[in-house]
Computed example of a mutant assay.
Amino acid sequence: MNDIDAWVWWLVAAAALGIPLVVTAMPEFGMFGVGAIAAAVTAGLGAGVVAQVLVFVIVSVALIAVVRPIAARHRAQQPHMASGVDALKGRQAVVLERVDGSGGRIKLAGEVWSARALDTGRAFEAGEEVDVVEIDGATAVVM
């Protein structure tokens, strides 16, 4: 076993670190694996054991220090893609039949919706563009 080069051992270590990465889904193991690959490159270039270990530690710690905060920030963010009736809020619609505080019809996202005005004293005539404020059941509240 002494005739195997150090870079091969580093590649074996990188592959071995890939196993717990897949099993536990902890990205830190992947970062250690990248550090092992960097150490293998260092060994392949003829550097000594101390340099190899330093490269492994520096690359691994740097990746953890940089990637983990970014991943945590992305994990904490709420999804930006609204779906269902939430996706209709804020969209524009065209009035098909007069809309006032008691009702009317609009064309919203290619569909005909019943609608009522947010301000009960306001009325919108056919052909006007309105903004959807909220969806109340099957009725769009517009302004």
Rank of each mutant, 00 (worst) to 15 (best):
V49K: 05
A82I: 07
P20Q: 02
R98Y: 00
R105C: 03
A16Y: 02
G35E: 11
A115C: 03
L96D: 10
R75E: 13
H74C: 04
A43G: 06
A13W: 01
V67S: 02
L54S: 11
A117H: 06
Q92I: 00
G103P: 11
A25K: 07
A15F: 08
G127M: 05
K89L: 15
A123M: 02
L108K: 08
V112K: 05
V23A: 12
G33E: 01
E111G: 04
G35A: 08
A123L: 01
A16K: 00
A109Q: 08
L108T: 12
A14P: 02
G127E: 11
V57G: 07
W9E: 02
A14V: 02
G127C: 05
D119Q: 01
R98H: 11
V12C: 06
W7S: 03
E125D: 12
G35M: 05
K89R: 15
V53S: 08
A72F: 10
R116A: 15
E28H: 11
L118M: 12
G18M: 07
T24G: 11
F29S: 00
A62K: 00
V50P: 03
R105K: 15
A47F: 15
V23F: 09
R122W: 05
G48W: 02
V12F: 12
G103N: 02
L108V: 14
I19T: 00
T24I: 13
A51S: 11
D119Y: 06
W113I: 11
A62T: 12
W7V: 06
E125P: 02
L108I: 13
A51E: 13
G110N: 06
G104A: 04
S114H: 10
L63F: 08
W10G: 07
V55S: 07
G110C: 04
A39L: 08
P69Q: 07
P79F: 11
F124M: 01
V59L: 08
V41W: 13
V94S: 10
G90H: 05
A15C: 07
R75K: 13
P20W: 07
A115S: 10
A93H: 06
L11P: 01
V22I: 13
D100R: 03
V67Y: 05
V34M: 14
E97P: 06
G30I: 01
A109C: 06
V49Q: 11
A117S: 15
D86R: 13
G35D: 03
V59P: 12
V112N: 13
G104E: 00
A38F: 13
R122L: 08
A14F: 05
G48A: 03
V112E: 14
V55H: 11
A62C: 10
G84M: 14
V94K: 12
L118A: 15
A47K: 03
E28L: 06
G48P: 06
V67N: 04
A38M: 10
A72R: 14
